[in-house]
Each structure stands twice: as C-alpha cells, then as structure tokens.
Design a protein around this nucleic acid. Structure first.
Lengths: 204, 204
DNA sequence: GATCTTGTCAACCGTCGGTCAACAATCGGC
DNA sequence: GCCGATTGTTGACCGACGGTTGACAAGATC
C-alpha cells in the first residue's frame, strides 16, 4: 500500500532518462514506426509528462538522435596530420567501427531521413561535412569540377551501399572492407580525372 | 439543372483514370505525404468509390507505381548482344534518359521505399535484377566472391548518388555522366581485386 | 502543516486509413 | 417509357495517430 504511486525525479535526471529511452527506441524503429504513447509507456511515464519535457515528437527525436550523430561526427574529424591517404584510412576505420556497434541506429536514421526533413538535415549535414573534409584535402578549397564533385558524392553512395551489404552479410572482415573502400576511393578519383580523356574499359 | 451530377464510366475506364491520377500524385508526393481523401478529390471521385476500386492505399500505390517500375525494368534488359561493355553502355544510356524524363517519380519512389516495405520491394527487386544482369555477364552464373558482390552493390550506390546529384545540378551532359559511370564501374571492379583477373581497365 | 514541484488521469481536438448503410443517377434491354 | 442492374454519392462512423487541457495527487522542502 505504501508503494510510491510513481517515482519522482529531478528535472535533469528525468530528461536524461527520456532521452535515453528515445535513443534506444529510435534505434530500433524509425520515426513513424513508434508512437508517443509507446515511447511514454516504455519510459514508464505518462504521455502529458513526455510532452511536458519535449514539446513535440520531432523535438524528442532531434534531441535524442543528434547526440548519436554528433558522436559519429567527431569520429570523422581527422586527428592525425600525416599523408591524406593515411588520414582517410584511419577515419574510415573508426567510422566502420562505429557502424559495427551502432548498425541499427544508423540504418534507422537513414530510414527516417527519407521522410523526415529533420532527420534528413542530420544525415545531409553529416555528408556535407564529410564531403568538405575530402575536398579540403583534394582541391585545397577550390571549387571542384562537376565530374570530381559527382565522383566523390558517388563514392559516398558507394560507401553507404557497401556498408549496408557488409553489415547485413558480415562475410568480410572490417579491415578488408576498409581496403576495398580505400581502393574504390582512389579508383573513383581516377575515373573522374580521366573522364574527359576517354576511359577505355575492356573485359577479357 | 440537367447537368449530370457525376460522370459515369466503365469499370476499366474508371480504373485506368484512378491509376493515372495515382501515378501523377505519387510522382509529386511520397506515399505518406498524400492522403486518400486528397487522392479521391484530385480524381474527382468520392472516397468510398476509390476504396471500391482499390481495397487499400497500398494497393493503389503498388498498382500505379509498379507500372512505372516495369517500364524502367524493360529498359535495362540488354537488347543487343555485342560485347558486354557496349551492352552496359547502351543500357546505362536509356536508363539515364528515363531518369531525365521521370526524375520526380524516381526520387519519390526512393523516398517511399525507405518507409514502405511494398515500395522497398519494388526498388530492391529492380536492384536485384540489375545486379543479376551484371553478374551473369561477369561470373557466368557462379556465385561471386564477397568483395566482388560488395563492389557491385557499391557501384549501384555510386550510381544512385551520382544520378541524384546530376539530376539536381544538371551541370554535366548525359553522355559525360554515362562515361563517368562506366569508368567508375571498371574502377570498382579493379578495386575489388581484378575480379579473377577477367576485368582490366585501360586508360589511354 | 503549507506550499511548490513533479507527476497522473481522463477527456478532448483534428486528421489519418478504412468501412458502412442509405440513397441517387445513369445505362441497357424490353 | 419503364425497370433493374450498375455505378455513383453522402455522411456518419471506427480505432489510432500527434498533441492539448484541466483537475487533481503525491513527494520534497521549509
């Protein structure tokens, strides 16, 4: 009988707990797959209280997921200052390691991004900064030719697709995948560089 | 006064008209962006009648959009039987031409695919068949090594990203893009480890 | 004990996909 | 010209969604 009717928390604690619950659920389900009722239930809290802490579903989503996105963002900031190719290799490795640990979070974020402008911003912001990092090394700030720009965007798409397949089938060690991605990067640059000078491809 | 209260049609006509209206709206808006009320309104028809012809929103979506997908699918069936690289080049060209004409349809389909399993099926079925076409040429039906499989999937991702950028910025003629994609294809195979030494890329 | 804060509960809004029953207009066949 | 099957419309309804409101309960603090 003297069981507390509910657990009372400090504002910060409660907010933290709701954020964690949100991060967990939004990693397992995309934005529209989960309802605020379920979210509140999972956190052991009433719906109005959830809305008291986060004025809308999107606010909760942004607050919860952007923490994860920032974590990933920090990983791709190059830390060493050796040769460009080594930096890329090292960044790729920590990127892949993060994906290995947070595969679901990432894939569900990509899924939400298709529909939700707010999620799209996160993903595209991440892509844009990645692109800028690469271009800063490659062209030293000059505007890239269209073919080069497309080649790099294409390579980012290559990465997404390759990583998606890899994290589903898992029949390649991470180091091998990194090698493949690196090789593809060089190859994409080559293909773009030679695109004016005609590239001949032969299958024997 | 003697204006007809509504226009009456044959079942086939009406079905056709609803399909067309659906295809048009689903090209401009993704699956969840458009409601059945709006759909019915746009077609000049009551909601129950719409449901009389299509038992659910997904049924209408599938029926309307898969017509477009089949159109695209036919385009990537290689028609000539010259050298593999020429077939690929020609298929790529008609593919790009189709995208140029139906950019919105395609991008909205991709968008719906993220959330909607039914749309996902369409897109992934298309990808799988494309993949099979390529592999049939490359390995003559044998199961590809993981690196090669990932490389090809990666290239498909490259295509998507490159095409997306291209159809937004339009600062590269279609032929150039085709060349770039072709070169990237060869480069991706090379990066994957020469694909049993059957593939060679030559730059002159 | 009084009071401020942190909560719950239940009812409500408009919209969604989807369904229902009652009824009206149109067409072909006689 | 009429009758009946077919092709429609109208409007109300269902449960679930995101989101809101107001009344009220319980824990912490002084």
């Amino acid at each position: 009988m003297s069981q507390p009717a509910y657990t009372r928390m400090q504002v910060d604690e409660r907010r933290r707990q709701l954020l964690d619950a949100g991060a967990e659920l939004f990693a397992k389900h995309s934005f529209e797959e989960i309802s605020m009722r379920e979210l509140a239930e999972a956190a052991g809290v009433s719906k109005p209280l959830l809305y008291h802490y986060f004025p809308s579903k999107i606010d909760l989503f942004k607050a919860a997921v952007s923490e994860k996105a920032e974590e990933l963002q920090r990983l791709i900031e190059p830390s060493s200052d050796g040769p460009a190719i080594e930096q890329l290799s090292q960044v790729l490795d920590s990127y892949l390691a993060w994906i290995e640990d947070n595969a679901q979070t990432w894939s569900k974020l990509l899924q939400s991004a298709a529909t939700l402008p707010e999620a799209r911003e996160l993903v595209e912001g991440f892509r844009q900064r990645t692109m800028d990092l690469i271009l800063a090394q490659l062209t030293e700030g000059r505007k890239p030719r269209p073919a080069l720009r497309i080649a790099i965007k294409g390579w980012l798409g290559y990465m997404d697709a390759a990583i998606l397949d890899w994290s589903e089938s898992k029949d390649l060690p991470r180091a091998k995948l990194r090698e493949l991605l690196l090789a593809a990067f060089g190859a994409a640059l080559m293909a773009a560089g030679q695109a004016d000078r005609r590239v001949r491809l032969r299958l024997d």
